[in-house]
Amino acid sequence: MTTTTAPITTRTLLTAAALAAPVWVVVSLAQAFTRAGFDLTRHPLSQLATGELGWIQIATFVTVGVLFIAGATGLRRALHGRPGGVWTPRLIRTVGVGMIAAGAFTMDAGDGFPVGTPAGPPAGMSWHAIAHMAAGSITFFALAAAGFVLGRHFTRTGDRTSAIISRAAGVAVILGNGWAMSGGRFGSLTLAIGVSVALAWVSTVAYRLRNHP
């Protein structure tokens, strides 16, 4: 006797993508406001993956990555034959893989966090911190590109408001990351805002497709 496994429904896969951003924002901010020594205006959210409680942020990275990878399949099905139906899921899958890699390769402790770490940036970068930065760069690029691809999708479907929001989400990632990389004041905060806004928009799009295919 043979048994077959029912395929995961498109609705379930889109639910995964819809949950990804809320999980990221809620868990990350809960730690940002409660972990001793962490200052979101100086420390990137990725630095929460260091220290004794770093496993929480590592698990968050991996969980969100898995949710986006699953959600990318749902987006591929939901957008099949429609504008952006090829590149949107590819880019979101890349975001998911990048998040998992960013969790696997952590930043170095620095600038007073975790508590007991000397002030200022670390003297040098470890190999895993370099890998984390590479994973982050790929993730940010894919996330920003997804915003512009979704903008094209909504433009061609006549949803002008969603097209503007999509492109704004892509710009938010570019500006947030650019300001942080330039060493601008509160760069870690602008990066967190830009990335979170874009992730939230992707989850919103997935939620809308889940309820209104």
Score class of each variant (00 low, 15 high):
Thr4Ala: 08
Thr4Ser: 05
Thr5Val: 15
Arg11Phe: 01
Arg11His: 04
Ala16Asn: 01
Ala17Phe: 12
Ala18His: 07
Leu19Asp: 00
Ala20Trp: 04
Ala21Phe: 05
Ala21Leu: 04
Ala21Asp: 03
Pro22Thr: 05
Val23Ile: 12
Trp24Asp: 01
Val25Trp: 11
Leu29Val: 15
Ala30His: 08
Ala32Asp: 06
Phe33Cys: 14
Thr34Val: 12
Arg35Lys: 09
Ala36Tyr: 01
Asp39Tyr: 04
Asp39Ile: 09
Thr41Tyr: 04
Arg42Ser: 07
His43Glu: 00
Gln47Cys: 01
Leu48Lys: 11
Thr50Asp: 01
Gly51Asp: 12
Trp55Met: 09
Trp55Leu: 13
Ile56Phe: 05
Gln57Lys: 06
Thr63His: 00
Gly65Asp: 05
Gly65Val: 13
Ile69Val: 14
Ala70Phe: 13
Gly71Met: 10
Ala72Ser: 15
Ala78Pro: 03
Leu79Gly: 06
His80Phe: 11
Pro83Asn: 01
Val86Asp: 03
Trp87Leu: 14
Thr88Val: 15
Thr88His: 08
Ile92Lys: 08
Arg93Lys: 08
Gly96Met: 08
Gly96Trp: 07
Ala101Thr: 07
Ala102Asn: 03
Ala102Asp: 02
Phe105Thr: 14
Phe105Ser: 10
Asp111Ile: 08
Thr117Val: 05
Thr117Arg: 01
Pro121Ala: 02
Ser126Trp: 12
Trp127Glu: 13
Ala129Asp: 08
Ala129Arg: 12
Ala131Met: 14
Met133Glu: 09
Ala134Glu: 10
Ala135Pro: 04
Gly136His: 13
Thr139Gln: 05
Phe140Ile: 05
Ala142Pro: 07
Leu143Glu: 05
Ala144Glu: 03
Ala144Phe: 09
Ala144Val: 12
Ala145Arg: 02
Ala146Ile: 10
Phe148Ser: 00
Val149Asp: 02
Leu150Ile: 09
Arg152Asp: 11
Thr155Trp: 01
Arg156Pro: 00
Thr157Pro: 09
Gly158Val: 15
Arg160Ile: 09
Arg160Asp: 11
Thr161Ala: 15
Ala163Cys: 01
Ile164Tyr: 14
Ile164Trp: 15
Ile164Gln: 14
Ser166Asn: 09
Ser166Phe: 08
Arg167Cys: 15
Val171Ile: 15
Ala172Asn: 10
Ala172His: 07
Ile174Glu: 06
Ile174Lys: 01
Ile174Leu: 15
Leu175Phe: 13
Gly176Val: 15
Asn177Arg: 02
Asn177Ser: 06
Asn177Ile: 11
Asn177Met: 09
Trp179His: 13
Trp179Leu: 06
Arg185Asn: 06
Gly187Lys: 00
Leu189Arg: 07
Leu191Lys: 00
Ala192Val: 02
Ala192Thr: 09
Ser196Gln: 07
Ser196Leu: 06
Ser196Thr: 13
Leu199Arg: 05
Trp201Val: 14
Val202Arg: 08
Val202Leu: 08
Ser203Met: 11
Thr204Leu: 15
Val205Glu: 14
Val205Asp: 12
Val205Ser: 14
Ala206Arg: 08
Tyr207Cys: 04
Leu209Glu: 11
Leu209His: 13
Arg210Thr: 06
Arg210Ser: 05
Asn211Tyr: 06
Pro213Arg: 11
Pro213Thr: 13
Pro213Glu: 10
